[in-house]
Amino acid sequence: MNEIKDLLDRYFNGTCSEAEKQNVETWLETYNKEDNEWLAMNKAQQELWLNSLFTQIEVDIDRPGLLRKIPQRSPIRMGILLKIAATIILLLSIGFLFFKYQQATPTTAGPANQEIITGGNRAILTLANGQTIDLSHSKNGEIATQAGLTITKKTNGELIYETAGQKEISENTGQAITYNTISTPRGGKYQINLPDGTQVWLNAASSVRFPASFRNLPDRRVELSGEAYFEVTKDANKPFIVVTEKQETQVLGTHFNINSYQDEGQTKTTLLEGSIRVSDKANRNIILKPGQQSTLKAGNIDIRNVDENDAIAWKRGLFSFNDENLESIMRKISRWYDVDIHYQDTFSNTSFLGNISRSKNITSVLKILEKSGEVHFKIEGRRITVMR
Rank of each mutant, 00 (worst) to 15 (best):
Q102S: 14
T269I: 13
N172F: 11
T108M: 09
I341V: 09
T385I: 04
G226H: 02
A123S: 07
E231A: 00
P75W: 03
Q72H: 15
M78F: 09
D263Y: 10
N23E: 11
P71S: 04
I61Q: 11
V243R: 12
Q199C: 13
I169Q: 03
T15G: 08
N180M: 04
G14F: 09
D338L: 06
P195C: 00
E29S: 15
R186D: 03
Y161H: 04
P195L: 00
I124C: 06
I61W: 08
S136P: 08
S275T: 08
F377G: 02
I89R: 14
T132P: 05
I116W: 14
D280S: 06
N305A: 15
E47D: 00
G317S: 04
V278G: 00
P195R: 01
E245A: 11
K69E: 11
I329K: 04
Q292L: 08
L366R: 03
S138M: 04
T346C: 08
I70R: 04
S213N: 01
D302L: 10
N283L: 01
G274P: 07
E29N: 14
H255M: 13
I84M: 14
I287Y: 02
S17I: 04
N23K: 09
V375P: 12
L252V: 13
I84N: 15
C16H: 07
T198A: 06
S359D: 12
K371F: 01
E231L: 01
G187K: 00
E308H: 10
G381R: 00
G130P: 07
E308D: 10
I70Y: 05
P185E: 03
Q45A: 10
K234W: 11
D60C: 09
R316G: 02
S260Y: 11
V59S: 05
D307Y: 11
C16N: 10
R388S: 10
I333T: 15
